[in-house]
Design a protein around this nucleic acid. Sequence first.
DNA 1: TTTTATATTTAGACTTGTCTAAATATTTTG
DNA 2: CAAAATATTTAGACAAGTCTAAATATAAAA
Lengths: 219, 219
Amino acid sequence: MLLSQTEENYLKAIYSLGYANSNKVSTTLISVELNTKASSVSDMIKKFADKELVHYKKYQGVSLTEIGRKKAIEIIRKHRLWEVFLVNKLHYNWDEVHELAEQLEHIKSETLIDKLETFLDFPTHDPHGDPIPDRNGNIEYHKNMMLSSIENGESCVVIGFKDASDSFLKFLDKLHIKLGSPLKVLSKEPFDNSMIVETESGSISISNQISKNLFVKKI
Amino acid sequence: MLLSQTEENYLKAIYSLGYANSNKVSTTLISVELNTKASSVSDMIKKFADKELVHYKKYQGVSLTEIGRKKAIEIIRKHRLWEVFLVNKLHYNWDEVHELAEQLEHIKSETLIDKLETFLDFPTHDPHGDPIPDRNGNIEYHKNMMLSSIENGESCVVIGFKDASDSFLKFLDKLHIKLGSPLKVLSKEPFDNSMIVETESGSISISNQISKNLFVKKI
DNA sequence: TTTTATATTTAGACTTGTCTAAATATTTTG
DNA sequence: CAAAATATTTAGACAAGTCTAAATATAAAA
Ligand SMILES: [Mn+2]
Ligand SMILES: [Mn+2]
Ligand SMILES: [Mn+2]
Ligand SMILES: [Mn+2]
């Protein structure tokens, strides 16, 4: 089934909102996410129900069907691989690529994104630390979330290290950060993407280089 | 002025049709090129006249204004650079990239295409031998046309070599091809993009590798 | 449990781009 | 040149996606 760009954006919104809100998503929430009106969302949802992309009972919100979820993940896969391309190959800064990826994610092709993935050498995460779904739609959930993608005020616990080099781990040692360490993001600095983090042994500044390499789980 | 994908496709069609037909393009010609109806073209042309993208007098056909021409060349630049990317970096075959480039040429960004051009190391021609306009909209016309882009039955004369290596020129020597040699394309083989070419000293088969490196001028 | 506030859906209208059918202009031909 | 053929434009309709305003359902408050 071939979807329009608009439809793809709706699907993606329902997916990511549902992800944070245990699946059931309200009309208003979607309309806020997509900068549109609730009435427009209502119309689109009816179309989606007909196409069996969502489960929908009037006034009860929507959730994606398996088909809808698959499609949403495909778009997210494209979005994130394009972001890697823009940062790693074209040398964009990580904070400049999102809007461009919003366009590129809608390019239709059976082969393009897999070739791009090969060209990029099968990255596992995008420049913001978010996991890239594989070609079968498998995506690692919270497990592989990066500290860099944690929002202001949110708490998490360290569950792994992406860069497992000696020097990196030694450095973490100095900061008293190890597997199981609870962290709370107190602020984020847009200029260099560093963050102030509260640890068990006090508040410290953490560079983006570090936060991109720390697997965490929200708590 | 921000143009829709549809508008960009119309502009590109008017540009390339006008190029072959000394600028004045008819409604019907455009409708054939874009697989649409003459009435739809009429509607769009009126919009273009309002936006000062075309010169238009009812029933007299259209030609691009300087603004329209600039915009058309921008899109062609994007199309051809994306084609180079797809072939050189993602290893698509040169005959697989056109439809994808038709999508990618519409990605909107102030910076993307220049960064892509740098990444590709400033290619001068796309995989089909067509010249790539520079960032200022300058495009080398017939002058830098490649033998590979000459159509069946057309005649041309050699005006330069892209790959000026010794071995390449020695090889051309053997074929009795040199600056000023007249050539006529007798047939093209889709399988390996080779062509049969009539030279002053007989008909020979020329590989795509060769034809992509011969600058020619139509006669 | 009523009443009130909020959320959601429906109705009707608008825009972009398309189409068919009809009207009008241009070109070709006798 | 006048008639016929062809090309172009206009008129009116339709689909996708959006909006405002009104109707209806759900949730919150009294
Ligand atoms: Mn993004
Ligand atoms: Mn991202
Ligand atoms: Mn092309
Ligand atoms: Mn090309």
